[in-house]
């Protein structure tokens, strides 16, 4: 009985061994695969219309971060990534058999045709959200641009009077405004937030403020004023 059990175990062991070996050899890749992510250095968002080249292969990513090249012979290659308004990336890479990964960050060069900003505010649960939209010399909104290191400063006043006829009241907030990147937005991907708890004094319902903004960019500083800032916390 014991000998019979040993035979059965031996047969099962051989079967499992053959199965694993066949899986190993059938899934073993005889060439190199290069896959990875390419993102904007500042925002971590997608780099639009980035063109990637390795060896005699190319690809264009319009709205995603992940790339993949297959059937590359093992060896040394030049990896090129170029996108409008971004610094060119040119890296020497080594491709081995199997999957090779590569993470790339691209540095934005400029916001094309930037001539000014248009700001809007929105009262949200966390505070006053500020949308920064870029406009060009024709006054049109700029939609495709890289994320650049920006700095936003602002002063929020209580508005005494109506939107058309007012004087600046007491200062409710003054100083730097934290910026964040909204990848879902079309025009205003740069947004700022003044938290409610950083606003000085008690706020009266249904009152409005005036926000004076200065945005510092590598292409210069731009000013804007929002004259109808709702000072009412929006409950969600």
């Amino acid at each position: 009985m014991r000998r019979r059990n040993s035979y059965i175990l031996l047969i099962i062991g051989v079967l499992v061994g053959v199965l694993f070996l066949s899986v190993y050899f059938s899934t073993r890749i005889p060439y190199g695969i290069l896959e990875g992510r390419i993102v904007d250095e500042v925002s971590g968002d997608v780099v639009r219309r980035v063109r990637l080249s390795v060896s005699d292969r190319t690809d264009i990513l319009f709205n995603s971060k992940d790339f993949r090249f297959t059937h590359l012979s093992p060896g040394h290659y030049e990896f090129i990534a170029e996108a409008p308004y971004y610094d060119l990336v040119n890296e020497e890479i080594e491709i081995n058999r199997g999957v090779n990964t590569l993470e790339i960050s691209m540095r934005g060069l400029e916001i094309p045709g930037l001539d000014g900003i248009i700001s809007f505010t929105n009262s949200v649960e966390e505070g006053i959200e500020i949308e920064i939209r870029f406009r060009n010399t024709q006054g049109r909104g700029i939609t495709d641009y890289p994320a650049l290191p920006l700095q936003l400063e602002g002063t929020l006043y209580h508005r005494e009077g109506t939107r058309d006829d007012y004087t600046l009241g007491r200062v409710l907030y003054e100083g730097e405004i934290a910026l964040f990147w909204d990848p879902e937005a079309h025009l205003a991907r740069n947004k700022g937030l003044i938290p409610w708890d950083e606003i000085n004094g008690e706020l009266v319902e249904e009152t409005h403020g005036v926000l004076e903004l200065v945005l510092h960019t590598p292409q210069g500083s731009f000013e804007d004023r929002v004259e109808n800032v709702a000072l009412t916390r929006k409950e969600e």
Binding site: D56, R57, T58
Partner: peptide, 10 residues
């Protein structure tokens, strides 16, 4: 084939 002579992946 891309205008620069390379072949598009896939």
């Amino acid at each position: 084939r891309c205008p620069d002579g390379r072949i598009y992946e896939g």
